[in-house]
Nucleic acid binder design. Structure first.
Lengths: 108, 108
DNA sequence: TATCTTACTTCATCTGTCGTAGTATGATGT
DNA sequence: ACATCATACTACGACAGATGAAGTAAGATA
């Protein structure tokens, strides 16, 4: 299991990635992150939902409440253009980050 | 420049790396991190010194005050065996972290 | 004599994570 | 019919680590 301090800078990126190909909602995103990471990373509920608030405030995602029908409330999120741009920035940054940290990692 | 939230989980590791081959002190470590990262990462003074406190409290480094002589006070730090073990753990963790985050990075 | 570099220390603030707890619906099993 | 589990969140408070701002003080340089 990965310590969250490491991932800290990439939680938002992971969420945005999950929205690249279409809208989704909290529980589903949570499951998908878990699955895609092969159980190596599980985002805490509170972390996830507070990230949604932050991302929406920053204009990187937008929300739409699809209640009605079944009565089961779900908040769906969509990535915005600004969110896509931010995601790409983060991906570029990730390359640099890897290069930097690699210099401080010694195989023994 | 890399945002610090990304590096957050690796500040301690970087400092420990700098102590692997011998003792050093704050200012020198700071310079060396800057240099080794090719100016891509500069650790803030307060971050560095608060990391020393934490690392020592955790038993990963030990300090020795080499005052006297010139009057210029310097606190030298040495990595402990426990610190070396922790460093290695972090290096292993780094491999896993990379694999995980890579799954969420899409080249576009 | 002034400024710059070295070498820290203190303090208060902020952000993001996380634990705990609670609410409420739908599905499943016996 | 009833309990239990999975789904789908929300609210709140605590905490750790990073940071900005400021200060102290000695030695080096111009």
């Amino acid at each position: 299991m990965i310590s969250s301090d490491v991932i800290r800078g990439y939680n938002d990126t992971m969420i945005l990635y999950m929205l690249l190909d279409g809208e989704s909602y909290g529980y589903e995103i949570s499951k998908n992150i878990r699955k895609l990471s092969e159980e190596k990373y599980v985002m805490k509920e509170t972390t996830l939902y507070s990230a949604f608030t932050r991302l929406e405030k920053n204009g990187y995602i937008s929300s739409l409440h699809k209640d009605g029908e079944t009565g089961k409330r779900r908040t769906y999120y969509r990535i915005t253009d600004s969110g896509r741009a931010y995601y790409q920035e983060k991906c570029s940054e990730w390359q640099v980050t890897q290069e930097v940290i690699d210099k401080f990692v010694r195989e023994m």
